[in-house]
């Protein structure tokens, strides 16, 4: 557990027996655009759930709803048993339990790699500078960037930036990680280094939800594969089953295009 946190209230305390992520009947509208049409999804501890589907099917919106970057227009989201839409819940604290990695990295360009990993530790978790830096160094080492600690994002390759982004999320000591197409903005030769970090992370037992187009990664690392289309989960199952033997015609059509 994290150190004593002044912002933490009893009702924010995670229930260790509850699944990390539980989504029930989730709907999301953007104006008249009905993007998520009743999503039910449970991600259990240590699971790596990969999400695939055509562009615009609502994958990002689903991921962003999990940590409430998008506010659902219907349904429920529970994080470690906490109803995150409860107005009394400290949402900022819940978000520290969920690491998020974006397609465009979104590193803070005015900070060094190390500072990227320490700022939220200090401001949110109340860790001292020394504590935060120790943790930040450890995480940058974990993603293989111990020699880039003082580099600014503009001095790093895309793959290195994405690994810093992963280190930044890990430095908060989250219980789960969300990845939104983490390798889609990378040059092909840089995809491998990021996937390797994610593979290691999965092996360490991290609960992960990964939107990806890397079918190889999904097959090898995923414990479950979800195919989404037009705001609904069309099909889910073991990755190798879904990929080799898709049941639904829409899944078949999608896979025949991307494989």
């Amino acid at each position: 557990m994290s150190p004593a946190n002044p912002k933490l209230h009893e009702r924010d305390t995670p229930d260790p027996s509850a699944p990390p992520i539980q989504v029930i009947g989730l709907h999301k509208h953007f104006g008249t655009n009905h993007v998520l049409k009743g999503i039910d999804l449970t991600v259990n501890k240590g699971e790596v759930v990969c999400v695939i589907g055509p562009s615009g099917s609502g994958k990002s919106t689903l991921l962003r709803s999990v940590n409430l970057l998008e506010w659902p227009t219907g349904g429920k989201v529970y994080i470690e048993g906490i109803d995150v839409q409860d107005p009394d819940v400290n949402l900022d604290y819940v978000r520290t339990r969920i690491g998020m990695v974006f397609q465009q990295f979104n590193l803070f360009p005015h900070m060094t790699a190390l500072r990227n990993t320490t700022i939220a530790q200090e401001k949110v978790l109340g860790r001292s500078r020394a504590e935060a830096e120790q943790c930040g160094r450890d995480m940058l080492e974990r993603v293989g960037l111990e020699d880039k600690i003082y580099a600014h994002p503009s001095q790093l390759s895309g793959g290195q930036q994405q690994r810093v982004a992963i280190a930044r999320a890990l430095a908060m000591n989250p219980d789960m990680m969300l990845f939104d197409e983490p390798t889609s903005a990378l040059d092909p030769e840089l995809v491998g280094e990021v996937l390797q970090v994610m593979r290691d992370l999965a092996q360490s037992g991290m609960t992960m939800m990964v939107v990806t187009h890397e079918m190889g990664f999904a097959r090898e690392v995923g414990s479950r594969l979800i195919f989404m289309d037009d705001g609904v989960i069309v099909e889910e199952g073991l990755p190798r089953d879904v990929l080799a033997n898709p049941q639904h015609p829409r899944t078949q059509a999608f896979l025949s295009k991307v494989l």
Partner: peptide
């Protein structure tokens, strides 16, 4: 994305 990354780290 800068605001989203920051909020996702728990910063207010």
């Amino acid at each position: 994305g800068q605001r989203e990354a920051s909020r996702s780290l728990g910063m207010s």
